[in-house]
Structure formats: structure tokens, C-alpha cells
């Protein structure tokens, strides 16, 4: 069964059935990744371009590995050191890459909405690898997939997203994804980092991190995105760590054992302490491992018959 969409632009556009389909496909790819030969020849006739206008380690590596393990040919492009600095527009850059017969584009861009803009102007399938402060759909899928692996169904589970909600595309995609899967979501952090109208998405808001931890089954701790904060929103990192950082003492004082997640890169000692990030409760490295399987599933499911996809838009 193909997905209901031609591109993966955001979680917002997916149906719960799409998400379940991606998870079931990822289950099979996870098995492939545990074999001695971690590769299948499925997409040997497909070329994928990874176009990154913003820095990335994990996402880019993960996409590249996923593409290679599906047997696809891969070209990488990063904005620094390219003709973008000579003033080339986004559409021109991408059309030039597509003129070299590329079938699929994975793009990260600092402008929110850039993948939607691109989807209106080019024919290839587009996967959003993060756009500004808007969405990061594959991260949300791998987060939910990792939770599902630990606790089974997400229905009725309580997930707290803690930290810089305002600047986080991971937070927004996670909220959409978890809601579609029937989980309860709470956001927590300093009031200056939580958007005013976030409750309209159906999430709870709690400014006390300790209380959020008491409420939840799973805590997804986000990075403080200093590069996106153009005016001071809290006084110092030390103060943030004292009032909003997650540490071992806090976890030990809870009556239950909760699961700790972080999408990386971690600012150790700021939003999360090393004794939490490296503890048994943490599934941070499982998230990274699952990322490859999830991205393989998304690429595979979007790679099907082109004429058919065009007719369903």
C-alpha cells in the first residue's frame, strides 16, 4: 500500500495509517540492518540528492546510510562552498541537480516552509530533513518508533517534551505525530521558550520541569537552540541548567522509571546531565539506530510508480 502523499514534507499531512505503514516497513528494515549483509538492492535504479542548506551530522549521515543500504546512488550537496554563495536561487540550485537525473531530494533548509515551496515547482519526491523552526518529520517518526519499541502502542501514553519548544522543529513534528497516534502530550520549559498559543494544538503546558517529569511516561528533552535565539530569552545557560535541566536526582526522586530521549546534539550539563543521558533509562542511541530504519522505510514507500503518484498528487 503506498502512502497517501507524494512527498514527506511534514507530519501534519500524514494520516495515522501512513505512520503505521512507515513503522511496519521500518520493522522489516531494522531486521535487514541486523544481518551480516546490511543491504538490499531495492532502489538500485534510483538516485537521491541530499541537499543541506544547514549543518547536520546525524540526520545527514543517517539519510545517506539509509539510501546506500537500499542500494540507491547518492549525491551530497551542502550550501557552504557551493554556488548558493554566488547568489543562485533555491529553485535554480535544485533544478540543476535534477537535470542530472536525480529521482528524489532530501532537503534541510533554514527557512520554514522551503520544502513546500520546492514541491510546487519540481517533479521529484521531496523529503523534508528539517525546515527552519517548522517541521522535522523523520525525527518525529523515529522518536515515536523508538517509544513504540519500548512501550508498545502509544495510545494513552504520556509524553513530555522539555526545553526550547519555541525554536524546535522537532517539538512541532513530535506534537503532530504523537497526537495522531493517540498519545497525550505536555510541553515544559521556561515561559519565554514556549509559544503562547501552543495549547491550541491540544497539548498541556507545564512550566515546572519536575512536575512534567512526574506526569509523564517518556521525557523527550530538547536542545537549547542558541543559534536561533536572536534576543536573550533566559539569563545564562547556568541558570537554565539549574531550573530546567534534567538531572539524576530529579529522576531518582520520581516514583517510577521514565524513558529519557534526546534528538541530539546534546548540550551536556545544560538541558540534560551526563548521568541522565548515559543512564539505563536513556534510549538516545536507540533513537539514532532506529533513524536509519525509519528513513529507509520513508524513502522506500515514496519511491514507487511515478505516473501513479502524479495522478494522486
Amino acid at each position: 500500500m503506498p502512502l497517501s502523499v507524494k512527498h514527506l514534507l511534514g507530519i501534519k499531512e500524514l494520516t495515522p495509517q501512513d505512520i503505521e505503514q512507515i513503522f511496519q516497513t521500518a520493522d522489516e528494515f531494522k531486521q535487514v540492518l541486523q544481518r551480516p549483509i546490511k543491504k538490499v538492492p531495492t532502489l538500485r535504479d534510483t538516485t537521491v540528492a541530499n541537499i543541506f542548506f544547514e549543518n547536520s551530522t546525524r540526520t545527514r549521515l543517517s539519510f545517506e546510510l539509509a539510501e546506500k543500504r537500499l542500494g540507491a546512488d547518492v549525491v551530497n550537496f551542502s550550501a557552504s562552498g557551493s554556488s548558493v554563495s554566488k547568489g543562485e536561487t533555491l529553485i535554480d540550485t535544485v533544478n540543476n541537480i535534477l537535470a542530472m537525473k536525480v529521482d528524489m531530494v532530501v532537503m534541510r533548509h533554514s527557512a520554514s516552509g522551503a520544502p513546500w515551496f520546492l514541491a510546487r515547482h519540481i517533479d521529484a519526491s521531496i523529503i523534508n530533513a528539517g525546515d527552519g523552526t517548522n517541521e522535522h518529520p523523520t525525527q518525529a517518526l523515529l522518536d515515536a518508533f523508538s517509544i513504540r519499541e519500548k512501550v508498545g502502542s502509544l495510545k494513552g501514553k504520556r509524553i513530555a517534551i522539555i526545553g526550547d519548544i519555541m525554536h524546535s522543529r522537532v517539538a512541532l513534528s513530535n506534537i503532530f505525530c504523537l497526537a495522531k497516534l493517540g498519545a497525550e502530550v505536555m510541553v515544559s520549559g521556561p515561559p519565554t521558550l514556549i509559544p503562547k498559543h501552543i495549547h491550541s494544538l491540544g497539548v498541556r503546558v507545564e512550566y515546572n520541569v519536575k512536575k512534567a517529569l512526574e506526569w509523564c511516561d517518556v521525557a523527550n528533552v530538547l536542545r537549547i537552540q542558541l543559534e536561533r535565539q536572536h534576543k536573550p530569552l533566559f539569563s545564562t545557560l547556568r541558570e537554565y541548567a539549574l531550573f530546567y535541566g534534567v538531572n539524576k536526582q530529579m529522576l531518582d526522586s520520581l516514583k517510577k522509571e521514565i524513558i529519557i530521549m534526546h534528538p541530539g546534539p546534546i548540550n551536556r550539563g545544560v538541558e540534560i546531565n551526563s548521568d541522565v543521558a548515559d543512564s539505563k533509562q536513556s534510549i538516545i542511541l536507540d533513537q539514532v539506530e532506529n533513524g536509519v530504519a525509519i528513513r529507509m522505510a520513508v524513502i522506500y514507500l515514496l519511491s514507487g510508480r511515478k505516473d501513479l503518484q502524479d495522478s494522486i498528487g
Binding site: 503506498p2 535504479d45 511515478k306 501513479l308
Partner: peptide, 10 residues
């Protein structure tokens, strides 16, 4: 894979 509907794996 490229010429027909995508199939769900078993």
C-alpha cells in the same frame, strides 16, 4: 519497484 505499486513487506 519503480514500475508498479509499492508493496508492504512481510
Amino acid at each position: 519497484v519503480q514500475t508498479r505499486d509499492i508493496k508492504a513487506p512481510h
